[in-house]
Amino acid sequence: MAAFTRIAREAILERGAMEHPALVVVADETLVDEPASAPLAGRRDDTPVLLNVNAQSARQLSVPEPVFRADFTAMAIAATGRLSSLSTALAAAASRLSGLDEEHCRAGIDAELAGELASRDELESNLALAHDVYTLASDWTAVAWPDDADESDVVEADLVDLGLEPPCRAAPSIYASANSPARHTGNWRQYRPVLEPDKCNRCWLCFVWCPEAAITLDENEFPTVDYDVCKGCLLCAHECPTDAFRVERELGA
């Protein structure tokens, strides 16, 4: 899901998904390589990307130019003390790249936030943040607005007929032994449930309760946790009637 703004002088006959963005803003750099988010989908070769990067991280993203990078999160926190001001920082950067004058950006921030923020001071610190961003971005080149005249080349979709498939495929269930087997939620874990088998009475309550389907039963009906996907919610430990799960601080997930 994405948020977007369309700006044009003529009527905008487009809805929903944006097929050819003129500017892509990525608020979280870790999404770039995330197939489910695919924030760069629809980007043409020359579509600029505004990337919020974590200056502390060693991560090297290979996003083809033109890319405008900055640690907007750090700027936002420095200016207002609030992470939520990231929206202000990114909006200001996107405004700058869209060719909007700073005063128009300020008017927009004022209109958006005046009713939301507790005090005039908070609004002022957001306006100061926008100013910081405009200063940082003073030498960025504004986006060249694409000419939409080449739309007549839209071709027919490659449609397929869906055939009847058996319910074991066609019902929305997951047979893999984890709800999200392709995403290793194991690294979310702050605490690790560790089974002490001699306390376990094999009631299977943990197996039933685990919301991630991360617990399977072995041949002796003892629970086994798949630590690649166990996200550490500790429902299993909480529900176990015999306290058979020891809870350890996670050190290496």
Partner: peptide, 22 residues
């Protein structure tokens, strides 16, 4: 049905991740 070949490929991939055969 408005459903593209690319979407069917993505669907098949999703089903295979979900442990669905065939």
């Amino acid at each position: 049905l408005l459903y593209t070949r690319a979407e069917k490929v993505s669907m098949d991939k999703l089903l295979s991740i979900a442990g669905k055969e065939g």
